Amino acid sequence: MSAIIEFKTARLIARQWRDEDLLSFAQLNADPQVMQYFPSCLSRAESDAAAARMRGLIAEQGWGFWAIEEQASQRFIGLVGLNIPSPELPFSPCTEIGWRLASEFWGKGYAIEAAQGALRYGFTQLNLAEIVSFTSIHNQPSQAVMRRLGMLQSDNFEHPKVPVGHTLHEHCLFRLTHARWAALEANTTS
């Protein structure tokens, strides 16, 4: 079992999952607006199982998809973090960054703020050479976040876990190398 890494940004806390997060997470995963770029919404049991997997990975390795809490309100607002995706992906092995926030917290810059903290952790603590992100080709909001993070669009691919013929089957891949991230960080701090 690893030491659990948590981090703060100006307005957010990335932390280990708590039992009290489960209801809000289930509501987020049942929201058709939040889940419009996923094959389906999640049932309460599926949502709880996903949270248990994320909690277990953080307990095991110290990092993963963290629960995100708004500092001012101390409310759970979603997740952000790093993950090693399934080996069936055409660009595996890799480490991905991902996020999912409750819709009431959209438009506040929280996804970018939390993702910047996760990228910093991945590049400075895990010493990753590259971090990727991917989404449906139709998911323009997430693609915009990826671009704002400095990620560069790479190839499109057919996601092996989305049925062939499904409107969400084709995904786009974005990449960010450690060198590019470091250059972008140097520009923002100077």
Results as ranks from 00 to 15, higher is better:
residue 51 A to T: 05
residue 182 A to K: 00
residue 139 N to C: 08
residue 81 G to W: 13
residue 117 G to V: 12
residue 55 R to D: 04
residue 25 F to C: 04
residue 70 E to D: 12
residue 59 A to N: 13
residue 96 E to W: 00
residue 106 W to R: 08
residue 113 E to R: 10
residue 186 A to Y: 07
residue 125 Q to I: 00
residue 23 L to C: 01
residue 162 V to H: 01
residue 15 R to F: 03
residue 73 S to A: 14
residue 124 T to Y: 02
residue 116 Q to K: 12
residue 122 G to Q: 04
residue 116 Q to T: 05
residue 132 V to E: 02
residue 99 W to I: 09
residue 76 F to E: 03
residue 159 H to Y: 02
residue 114 A to E: 06
residue 175 R to S: 11
residue 87 P to Y: 10
residue 183 A to M: 12
residue 26 A to E: 09
residue 182 A to N: 09
residue 108 K to L: 14
residue 112 I to V: 12
residue 39 P to I: 01
residue 181 W to V: 03
residue 190 S to D: 11
residue 75 R to M: 14
residue 21 D to M: 13
residue 26 A to G: 14
residue 69 E to Y: 02
residue 94 C to K: 03
residue 35 M to W: 03
residue 63 W to A: 04
residue 161 K to G: 13
residue 8 K to D: 14
residue 41 C to Y: 02
residue 81 G to N: 09
residue 45 A to L: 11
residue 82 L to V: 14
residue 128 L to P: 00
residue 65 F to K: 15
residue 112 I to D: 03
residue 89 L to C: 12
residue 136 S to T: 12
residue 66 W to V: 10
residue 97 I to T: 06
residue 28 L to C: 05
residue 181 W to M: 08
residue 74 Q to G: 13
residue 141 P to G: 05
residue 185 E to L: 12
residue 172 C to D: 01
residue 89 L to M: 08
residue 137 I to V: 15
residue 58 I to M: 03
residue 101 L to Q: 03
residue 26 A to D: 10
residue 23 L to W: 00
residue 27 Q to S: 08
residue 19 D to Y: 12
residue 103 S to Y: 03
residue 17 W to G: 00
residue 150 G to M: 06
residue 185 E to K: 09
residue 37 Y to M: 13
residue 73 S to F: 01
residue 124 T to S: 09
residue 91 F to T: 06
residue 39 P to M: 01
residue 14 A to L: 13
residue 151 M to V: 15
residue 66 W to T: 06
residue 159 H to N: 14
residue 69 E to A: 01
residue 72 A to C: 11
residue 159 H to I: 13
residue 175 R to I: 15
residue 106 W to M: 09
residue 44 R to T: 13
residue 173 L to N: 02
